[in-house]
């Protein structure tokens, strides 16, 4: 180690100090509470060891909402990535007018999430929502966007995509701008088709940005809450009840803080495991793509 690196640890102090005080303490407290039967109403807590965990893990409800979460999470991220990437390529291709488009397309990402949920409700609400009202005017009876179990999932995914596709688009567009244009030109002169250029020149060069966007989105999408709460409240039935909806119900509605904390910890473990393996997979593709 070079001598100047010795003071390096001090650089960690402000950030990690803050994290320890402000974030790790509540996190630790939540983990601690997860071992208690703690009903916030009466304030009495009884230590029950792994009781909350055993109870939760044996519930069909937990697994059902976990599946719903995973379906919605992967559906959203896949859609966001596909559309975001296509938009980024289109912007890259347009060049001159791209700036205006990139500004306009980024707008939905700026909207406050609580407000965005309201906007989307005005679009998707049955009968008097804009989509329905327009189609009904032309005597087309649209599907029940928020009321049909399958469509409700689709709507929720679309809603999430509306907000987060711009983020992916922007990151990938920026990454494309950083691309060495001469590589593409060389390939074009060689007579390579657009598709081949995309596969063999552009995508390999974008792998780090792709991994970045997918990981960031996957991480956040599991906390996905506001939109579902406003749009469907978890319904119809339990079709859009995600794990965060369940946590909200336990912690904020029923005030069963111990059990809610245990659910939070379970979610954390499952999602972390899931993401770790996805990251592994993406990274190995990355290495493969590098060669």
């Amino acid at each position: 180690m070079v001598s100047w690196q010795r003071g390096l640890w001090l650089f960690f102090v402000p950030s990690f100090g803050l994290l320890a005080v402000v974030l790790l303490w509540p996190l630790g407290y939540a983990i601690y509470l997860s071992f208690f039967d703690y009903f916030l109403g009466t304030g009495t807590r009884t230590f029950i060891g792994l009781g909350n965990y055993i109870e939760l893990l044996s519930e069909a409800r937990l697994w059902r909402s976990m599946w719903t979460t995973i379906i919605i999470a992967f559906g959203s991220v896949a859609l966001e990535f596909a559309v975001g990437f296509a938009l980024a390529l289109a912007l890259y291709r347009l060049n001159s007018s791209a700036k205006v488009f990139s500004v306009l397309l980024f707008l939905p990402h700026i909207v406050t999430p609580v407000v965005a949920a309201l906007f989307l409700k005005w679009m998707l609400a049955a009968n008097w929502g804009l989509v329905d009202a327009t189609l009904l005017t032309f005597d087309i009876t649209p599907p029940d966007w928020l009321g049909d179990p399958l469509w409700a999932k689709v709507s929720v995914i679309l809603a999430d995509a509306w907000i987060f596709t711009p983020l992916i688009m922007m990151v990938l567009y920026a990454a494309l701008q950083g691309l060495d244009a001469s590589l593409i030109e060389a390939a074009q002169i060689d007579g390579a088709s657009n598709w081949r250029i995309l596969r063999h020149v552009i995508i390999p060069a974008l792998i780090p940005a792709i991994i970045f966007t997918i990981s960031v989105r996957l991480m956040d999408v599991f906390r996905f809450f506001d939109l579902i709460y406003v749009l469907t409240g978890g319904g119809p039935g339990t079709a859009t009840e995600t794990i965060t909806m369940y946590t909200y119900q336990l912690g904020f509605r029923m005030l069963e803080v111990g059990k809610a904390s245990a659910l939070g910890v379970i979610t954390l473990v499952i999602v972390a495991a899931l993401l770790l393996s996805i990251n592994r997979a993406l990274n190995s593709i990355y290495r493969g793509g590098d060669r």
Partner: peptide, 21 residues
């Protein structure tokens, strides 16, 4: 019930009545 009733709370139902739906 009107389409979308599973996502209807008081606001939505009120609008359905007010709009003659």
């Amino acid at each position: 019930a009107p389409r979308g009733f599973t996502a209807h709370a008081n606001d939505e139902s009120t609008i359905n009545l007010q709009q003659g739906l």
